[in-house]
Design a protein around this nucleic acid. Structure first.
Lengths: 229, 229
DNA sequence: GCTACACTTCGGCGCGGACCGAAGCGTGGC
DNA sequence: GCCACGCTTCGGTCCGCGCCGAAGTGTAGC
């Protein structure tokens, strides 16, 4: 355990892992810039991360793309972020300094997070579509119909996967949002419908006006008006 | 994030945190033995863990008990263990040499302690009858009804006392049990019902067969079969 | 009072590892 | 063929921190 934690415990490696949290694959040079170190140093770090199976490389031409090795790794990093984000001063509610766009809606590895992710999950739970507890989740029969109507087929291929539906703790909202295969399918469908759009860089996600209407109509999700400067 | 992970990244601190994963509170010396370092080194580690709110100390006499600070911390450690591939619950190395009878059930000043005390308290908390945190406690409205049914009147005289309901750290189980005026009232009532009996000498307490049935029926307390020679 | 014990603080030692520059492979473009 | 570029490997420096022994503080028991 100490070995794994020590890998994350270095600031440069932590920056790299944080940058990979959106599930994308980044090149060694990009990760070096992200961590603020030279390519030589970054290469050493990536070698260690690869050796411990935290990230996996993909050679492509003269680039090497690195991505997080598994969902478990992403989940572990989220867990660390939750603890790291807690205020050190007890009793005082120190407001978290988080990019508002990121807090509003973002991807968490392969699924939705932020206010949007939490609100959507909350809606699904309150409507009895899914049940979440103790790190496990389940889709109800009515939930399957609702999801099917939305264009997410509950194929046996999906159902057979271990973690079809599971909760994930949101580090900015401190509430659970939906992860697992179902969470990934929801994100994909929302992108497909153009209800949300990935931002050019980073994990932030933008809700389109069609998405705002659709989320309200179909899921009863009331999103706060976006405050734009 | 790197700072938190770095704390877990040290082998000695990781051993300590792993030893605390079962929710018990251990002394500094016990944690030092667990980590295989001197008390001096352990003290430094525990100072850092406390400063970052990963563990919280509880001073009791000339001992200092340390426990994990929150559920989030336990969850984080679990996430790291999953990636590290270690078993979630490690074998306990520090075996406690305590008289089994005393450990099973005893009085702690004027209230119940030992397995019975912890189990009863745990039951009351999980049923939402009482809430314990940070050295203070509170009886919920539903808890008052439950206690009244059991024959413990929530008289204003009792309520007016400062410490009507408070947690107390159990030295044999290393978990909190119920103390305060309510804890004393519970002990008295259990004796009155002859669900428990004081032993002739010492603080040990014996559970009668009627008590075993009653505790199971009313509080859902499952007591392990007493192993008698 | 004294002693025993639990724990912390202080000072100093020593190892591990993060970092960089320079050089060494590959790949791709000209 | 050549050069440009991405990335890795190699040496060497240096800071951080884990570690301990010894001394100091506080509590419990006689």
């Amino acid at each position: 355990m100490a070995g794994i934690a020590a890998l994350v415990g270095d600031p440069a490696r932590a920056s790299m892992l944080a940058a990979l949290m959106d599930g994308r694959a980044l090149t060694a040079t990009e990760l070096a810039a992200e961590a603020g170190v030279t390519p030589a140093t970054a290469s050493g770090h990536l070698g260690k991360l690869t050796g411990s199976r935290l990230v996996t490389p993909t050679a492509q031409g003269r680039h090497r793309y690195y991505r997080l090795a598994s969902r478990e790794v992403a989940r572990m990093l989220e867990g660390i972020m939750v603890v790291a984000g807690e205020p050190l001063v007890r009793g005082r509610r120190t407001e978290l300094r988080i990019d508002p766009d990121l807090r509003f809606a973002r991807t968490c590895y392969d699924h939705l997070a932020g206010r949007l992710g939490v609100a959507l999950t909350s809606s699904l739970v309150s409507r009895g579509a899914v049940e979440l507890r103790d790190g496990a989740g389940q889709v109800t029969p009515s939930g399957e119909r609702l999801l099917a109507d939305f264009g997410i087929a509950s194929e046996s291929a999906l159902r057979s996967r271990r973690m079809y539906c599971r909760p994930c703790l949101d580090w900015s909202e401190r509430r659970t949002h939906l992860a697992g295969v179902l969470g990934a399918a929801l994100l994909e469908r929302l992108l497909e419908l153009r209800w949300i759009e990935r931002s050019a860089a980073g994990r932030a996600v933008k809700v389109t006006s069609a998405g705002r209407r659709g989320l309200q109509a179909r899921f009863g999700v009331e999103l706060p008006r976006e405050s734009r400067p």
